[in-house]
Design a protein around this nucleic acid. Sequence first.
DNA 1: TGTACATCAGTGAACGCGCGTTCACTGATGTAC
DNA 2: TGTACATCAGTGAACGCGCGTTCACTGATGTAC
Lengths: 189, 189
Amino acid sequence: MRTTAERKAETRGRILDAAGELFRLHGIDGVGVDAVMHRAGLTHGGFYAYFPSKEALVAEVSAASLARSAARWERISREGKPQAALADIVRSYLDPAHVAAFERGCVLATLGPEIARRHGVRPAITPSIRQMVDALARCLPDGQRAAALAKLSTLVGAVVLARLCDDAQFAGEILSAAEQVAGRRKNVD
Amino acid sequence: MRTTAERKAETRGRILDAAGELFRLHGIDGVGVDAVMHRAGLTHGGFYAYFPSKEALVAEVSAASLARSAARWERISREGKPQAALADIVRSYLDPAHVAAFERGCVLATLGPEIARRHGVRPAITPSIRQMVDALARCLPDGQRAAALAKLSTLVGAVVLARLCDDAQFAGEILSAAEQVAGRRKNVD
DNA sequence: TGTACATCAGTGAACGCGCGTTCACTGATGTAC
DNA sequence: TGTACATCAGTGAACGCGCGTTCACTGATGTAC
C-alpha cells in the first residue's frame, strides 16, 4: 500500500518531467496528451487518473519547473559572496549550450508568452518570479531593487533573442553582451 | 485590371493584418486558417489563393510586423537627439497600455519563443533584429554596441515578465525599472 | 504456506470536434465586338 | 450604347487527421483466511 502510493507518485513525476521537456521543445499547443504519456512510457488513457485536464498539467509543470529554478537561485545567492553568486547565476543562465537546449531551458524564456496568455497559470508563476528577483537583489548593494528587476529582464530577453537569431555568431554576441551588463554589480563603466 | 490587382493586394493586406492580431492574441497554434479568414471578412477556402500554406503566412506576417517596428526605430534614431530618441523608443516599448495590448505588441516579446521553434521563419526575422540593435546603438555614445544589445534584451525581457505577473503593481515595477535602466545613456549611477 | 478475492494502475477503443488543405463551383466584373 | 463572353476572387462542402476526453476493461499486486 505504501509502495503503491510511492509508485504512483513516481509515475506522476515521470509525466510531469515528460511534459516539461516536450512543452518547451514544441510549445504547449504543439504537444498532445498522448505524446506526453508516450514519453512517460504509458498510454494516453491513463492521463486522467493523474490530472483533471491538460490545462491543469500545464499549470503544474510550469509552476514546478520555475519553482525549481527559483530555489536554485536562492540557494546560490545565500551561499557564496555576492559578486561570485551573481556571476554564477548570470553565466549559467546565458551559457550558449544551455540556451540551445530548449527542452531544459528556463520556463520564462522558453514558454513565457504562451503561459502569459493562460491567465489561470499566472498566479502559480508570479511568486517564483519574485523569488528570482529577490535572489538577484541579494547579490547587489542595498537599494538596487530596480537593478535586480532590470537584470532579470535582460537575462530573459537575451535568451529569447539569441534563439531567434539565425546567425550563431550574432546570437553569441547578444549572450555575451547580456552577461557583461547583467553580471556587473555596480552600474558604473 | 489595374483595379483588380490593387484590390487583391488590399485583400492580402487584410489577411496579414488579421493574422498578425490573432496570432499575437492567441498564439500561432491557437489560431486556425479559418479564424484568420473570418476576421479578414472572407471564408477559409480562399486562403490558398494568397498563401501556399499556414506556415508561409506565419513567416510573412512575423517578418512584416517586425520590419515595421525596426523601420520605426531607425527613423526615430535618425531624427531627434540621441538622448531623446532613446527615451522615446524605450518609453513607448515599455508603456503599460502597449504591453497590455497583446494584439499590437512587439513580435519579439509576444511570439518570440514560438517563432524561434520554427526554423524556417528565423532568417526573415534576424535582419530586423540587427536593425533594431543598430538603431539603439545610434542613440548611444560610440563603442557601446554591447550596451545596445543588452538594452534590447532588457526591453524584450521586461515585456515578457510583466505579462507573466499576475499582480499589476509588480508588473509596473518591472516596466519602470527596465525603463530607468534601458533609458540611461551612460552606464553610470 | 496456499488459495480466493478485492483493489486499482494502466489499457486501448471510441466520442465529437476543429484543424490544414483541396476542389468543383458561382457570380461579379472587365473586355470584345 | 448594348450584348455575349472570359476571367478569376471568393465560396462552401469535403477530405483525412490528430486533438482532449471518456469509459468499459484487464491483469498485476496486496490482503484475508
